[in-house]
Every structure is written in C-alpha cells, then in structure tokens.
Nucleic acid binder design. Structure first.
Length: 196
DNA sequence: CCGCCGATCTTT
DNA sequence: AAGATCGGCGGG
C-alpha cells in the first residue's frame, strides 16, 4: 500500500481540460470510504454551453466562481446530488464532474449507503451513486478539498494507470453535447452511462 | 443486455 | 418545462 498524498491547491488551479484527465486514478476520500476515480467530465464555465455557469453566477453556482480545490455539489432531478471539483482561476467557473469510481476502502460502509445497489458494480458508477456511496450531499457544497475542512479530500497514492484513458462526448447533455470533454478508463466495470 | 418510464423538485 | 440521474420493469 503506497502512501496517500493529498492533492495540492496548484493541482486544481489549472484549466479543467487539463485537470480532468489528471484526476483519473486519484482517490476520493470521505469518512473511511475511498474510491479510485475512473470517469470524469470537464465543464468550462462561460465558454461551455453545457456548464451550469454558462450564463453567469447564480446562488446555485457561486462556488464554481470561487477558488479552485473546492467542491461544487448540486441537486438534480428532484432527488440526486452530484459533485464537481472547482478548477482554474477565481471567476472562471471551471469544474470537473466526478462521474464514477472504484471502491478501494470502506466497502461495508459504501454498501450500507447504497441499499438499492443490486450488484457491486452499481455501488459507485454514476455521479449521484458516487455521492450517495460516500455520503456527500448539499452540506458539502463549497467544502475545501485541500484543507479537508469537511472531511472530504482527493489524494494520489502514486499508482500508475494500468489502462490508457479514453475520451468521449459528455453524458446526458443537450447543450455542448458535441464537445469531447469526458475521460474514463475503458473496460472498467464502474464506468457509467453512454454518450448520445 | 437493452430500452422505456416514473419519481421528485430546483432552476429557468 | 427541462434537467450534468437512477432504478424498476419488460422484452430479446
């Protein structure tokens, strides 16, 4: 087991198109539960019609316009939470959506948090499943991943990827649907969804 | 495995 | 009225 090293602020303070692929293989940690990130999507603020921040700041999206390295957690479809990592400079509203992971530790707690999952592959494959599995909800909006002020952080354990990342268009969008801003580790059982 | 549909509520 | 989703159901 290699030592886990929390990602520094400088990791996040770059263009989301650079940060997103670099997040593959990193560890999302909360409350004894750890998953290895295997699927992400980049969202590029005012330059991206698919971003919640495309039309400028609102109460919902204000965290995205703040400093990098914080969580942007939003509520969708009346019942689900999804988590993004804020990237780039202040005011740019870059973000990377965490779409899927592979459980690394705390499997019992993850299973307990996902009672609807029939198979293990359904535990953390999907942005809302991932949040439910790790116990991340709206109270974590704005949480600092570098300071881990609410117990959530991202770390690297130095493990090299065994699969080359692949790209595709993003899942579930009608605006910006043609942009190839999704990265994933192909063949991984936890990778979710399909582009349209 | 795949496709369809309903749930449920915030945002526009 | 649509949405950065999920889970249950039916069919192949």
């Amino acid at each position: 087991m290699a030592r886990r090293r929390r990602l520094p602020r400088s990791f996040y303070a770059r263009d989301p198109l650079e940060v997103a692929p670099d997040l593959l293989g990193t560890l999302l940690v909360h409350d004894g539960r750890v998953v290895r990130i295997v699927e992400v999507e980049a969202y590029c603020g005012a330059d991206d019609p698919g971003s919640h921040a495309y039309r400028g700041p609102t109460p919902r999206t204000e965290v995205m316009f703040g400093p990098a390295g914080h969580l942007y957690v939003y509520f969708t479809y009346g019942m689900h939470w999804c988590a993004n990592v804020v990237c780039g400079g202040v005011g740019e509203a870059g973000a990377v959506l965490l779409r899927a992971g592979a459980p690394v530790a705390g499997l019992d707690a993850i299973r307990a948090a996902r009672p609807k999952a029939r198979r293990d592959r359904d535990l953390t494959s999907g942005p809302a499943r991932l949040c439910q599995a790790l116990g991340i909800d709206g109270t974590y909006d704005g949480a600092d991943l570098v300071k881990a002020d609410r117990g959530v952080s991202l770390a690297s354990d130095g493990t090299a990827l065994t699969t080359e990342p692949a790209t595709s268009t993003r899942i579930g969008l009608s605006q910006g649907a043609d942009l190839p801003w999704r990265w994933y580790l192909p063949g991984h059982p936890d990778v979710s969804g399909r582009p349209r």
